[in-house]
Each structure stands twice: as C-alpha cells, then as structure tokens.
Amino acid sequence: MLVGVLVWRRHRLLDVLSLGRDTAVNLGVDHTRAAVRILMAVSLLTAVSTALVGPMTFFGFMAATLAYQVTGRHEHRYVLPTAFLVGLCALVGGQFVLEHLLGHAGTLSVVVEFTGGALFLYFLLRKAAR
C-alpha cells in the first residue's frame, strides 16, 4: 500500500521517463537512479502480491493493458488508478462469481491466468500482424 502511494506520487516522473532515456536526461531526470528505484518498487509490489495471492504471471499485464485501453491515455495519472481498479475488480469480482455463482468450481488464479494469457497472445499476434 505504502509503496503504491510512493509510486503514485511519482506519476509525473514516470511520464517523463516514457519519453525515453535521452529526453528524460535532457529534462533533468537522474535516469539511473530513477530506473533503480522503479525496479525496486516493482519487485517489492510483486513480492508482496505473490505472497498474498500466489503467482499470477499474466495478471499484471492484463490489468495494465486494460487500463491503457479503458483510459485511452498514456499519462500515469490516469493509468495507475485505473490499473489498480481493474485489478481489484478482476480479483474480487472473480472470486465472488466463483464462490457464489459457480459454487467453487475452480480456482481464480487459473481463470485469471487463462484470460490474461489469451490477452497477451492476442496483443502479440496483433503487433506481429502490423
């Protein structure tokens, strides 16, 4: 949670970094330091979420991609909270459907992995087709 907030407070820095290293350095960003910090935050977030709900390879990809699609924007101001909400809805909603409507018919992580993986393949193929 804390890490999430820290990342959120840096959303403008993330926007600048997405312009590429050279432009970011030109605009006064210490690129190496920023990259190390982001990697640290990402590993921490991944570690915590894996510890809590188990490994889900494609879940992050799914949340991020859907967030880009939903917002139609690139600014992290919009993308970060949307990805957060998408992730929350998918997990809580998925768990609810499984438990109450399907009567514990399977585990959520299998479903998430399947849809996330399918989405990943879809985007991969669409990129390749272009």
Partner: peptide, 14 residues
C-alpha cells in the same frame, strides 16, 4: 542547457 538528438524515439501516445 538543453539538447535535441539527431533521432528521437518515443513510446507513448502524446
């Protein structure tokens, strides 16, 4: 000081 390189790649939609 500001600098613009010969080529500029970008990844985001701006």
């Amino acid at each position: 000081l500001s600098i613009l390189r010969q080529e500029n790649r970008f990844t985001t939609r701006l």
